[in-house]
Design a binder for these strands. Structure first.
Lengths: 201, 201
DNA sequence: ATATTGGTATGACAAATGTCATCCGCACGA
DNA sequence: TCGTGCGGATGACATTTGTCATACCAATAT
């Protein structure tokens, strides 16, 4: 039996995925969590062979959870299962010890197949997504540019961003200006959208 | 047997929900679609008792599909199953002949229960969401204000919005200004976020 | 018949935003 | 040790955005 931990915040989706996997004779759900910051503790208790992590979760993102989990239980294979196939996510995931990356758009049958393949030591990544990650190159933003853009994306004004990040307003404007240029956007709203869509946020 | 049509764009979630419901002895999935504009045709072919519709779908939103489906097959009970419990969505759904409204955060067991209840003629709505819809009141935006805000939400500049909607720039500014005030926002980014979050977009 | 409301438009003005040049200090690789 | 890049800052400037008053017309509500 392959022991699987399932981390997904939406209860109905979690339950449904659990039902789907339980239909397989060789797969067993040994833990279910709804928060990113509950993954490691649950994994230490349940000792799963495979952890299936959503990215969008409260507490900590699936990517953060993956890095931490990999550090604590290196034997546990990690598969990211997420809504958005942002190339930037794939990059971060691979750097966090993840061996599988599936998007929820893929057929349901691929899920069990992916679990078996990573258990056998293979890596499982959607080829189209891998291509996109390779062709799009690195995140061109510096850390601070990312920070500023992330706050701006929530509708904050320059003054609010400056206060949040403890910067002068002029500095915030500079970072935003650079980010807008690097991303080829017209204004920060568009810049934020582009960065988010690529998983650079 | 209760005949169910399942409309959800993410294949993996759709497959998982199908697996979950197929475990029930009295429920049978008779049709699965991935696009909003495929719902009515599939329903006419499969004659389901209950249609389970996601809101976020390509082609047409689940709410649009609900209205059309209700017009074509009034006997079919419609349940909206969606990620976001925006009160505005609930309002629109109820006006479109929907009898059930579930959020994906709810426990998986509620899904089959809801299907049985709507089949028995009951209405099923998350009480917390119903309260929110009642307390938040109507969408305060006029049609045009909504249009302008919707385009602005995608990062367009005033000039681009004006071009898209064939308006003068001054008019666009006026609408945005009014929308910002009505929503109690600081700028159009925040206004767009508020409107979207309430399902008013 | 007469307000009122929504859609559209102008013009003027203030505030926020985006751009640019320039500067400082610090860390890090060559 | 010297350059380079990043984090941080300032000041000036042009442009965009947000606000407000005002106006006209069409459709409703009273």
């Amino acid at each position: 039996m392959i022991r699987v931990l399932l981390a997904e915040d939406q209860a109905m989706v979690r339950g449904a995925l659990g039902a789907l996997l339980s239909l397989e004779d060789d797969i067993e759900i040994v833990a279910e969590v709804a928060r990113g910051d509950a993954v490691v503790a649950a994994a230490q208790a349940a000792q799963p062979d495979v952890a299936l992590l959503d990215i969008e979760m409260p507490g900590a993102s699936g990517l953060d959870a993956a890095a931490e989990l990999h550090a604590h239980l290196p034997a546990c294979r990690i598969i990211i299962l997420t809504t958005f196939g942002r190339p930037g996510y794939l990059r971060r995931a691979m750097a966090s010890g993840v061996v599988g990356f599936l998007v929820k758009d893929a057929p349901a049958t691929q899920l069990a197949a992916a679990i078996r393949r990573v258990t056998a030591g293979e890596r499982v990544v959607d080829p189209a997504l891998a291509m996109a990650a390779l062709s799009e190159g690195e995140n061109p933003l510096t850390d601070r540019e990312r920070d500023v853009l992330a706050v701006a994306a929530r509708g904050a004004s320059i003054a609010e961003i400056a206060e949040t990040l403890v910067l002068s307003e002029g500095t915030v404007r500079n970072y935003l200006s650079v980010a807008i240029q690097k991303l080829g956007a017209q204004n920060r709203i568009e810049a934020a959208r582009i960065a988010e869509q690529k998983g650079w946020l």
